[in-house]
Amino acid sequence: MTAHSELRLLPWSGTDGKPCYLSTDDSNSHLSRLADTTEAIQLGLATDLLTSALEVLNDEKTAPEDLRNLSTDLVGALRDTLRVATSRGQRLSTPRPSTQGGGDNPRLPAAAFG
């Protein structure tokens, strides 16, 4: 396994609201697995909330307080989802440009597109 030189953004924040990071090259450590599980739960909750939100928004009789509560829940889910996306994006390996074909345009094999 290759050691990572970057910190992993964890899917929760500290008590002061600041981001928490993990420094490890072991993606199977207890804290790494806990972070993976938490990310999966957060994304699942966001999916469930989206379904509920569509139902609430389609109901013309939804009270303003219910819409306010829904908005608060959606903001929280969006914050969590963006944190997961940021963390996962930071952990993607950066592809090296291909030397085949010359020029400034890197070439990817067809398999890269599924």
Rank of each mutant, 00 (worst) to 15 (best):
M1N: 00
T2Y: 05
H4A: 13
S5W: 11
E6F: 11
L7F: 06
R8V: 14
R8Y: 15
W12M: 01
W12P: 04
S13I: 11
T15L: 13
C20I: 00
L22R: 07
S23Y: 09
T24S: 15
D26C: 06
N28H: 14
S29V: 01
H30P: 02
S32D: 08
R33V: 15
T37C: 05
T37Y: 12
A40P: 01
L43Q: 06
L43W: 01
L45M: 11
L45H: 09
A46N: 08
T47D: 14
D48L: 15
D48S: 12
D48N: 10
T51A: 13
S52G: 03
A53E: 03
E55K: 14
V56D: 02
N58M: 09
N58L: 08
E60G: 01
K61H: 09
K61W: 02
P64Y: 00
N69F: 11
L70H: 01
D73T: 00
D73K: 09
G76N: 12
G76C: 03
A77G: 06
S87T: 06
R88I: 05
G89K: 07
G89Q: 07
Q90R: 14
P95G: 02
P95E: 04
R96C: 00
R96Q: 02
G103H: 10
P106D: 01
R107M: 13
R107F: 07
L108F: 15
L108T: 04
L108N: 00
A110D: 12
A111D: 08
A112D: 09
F113L: 11
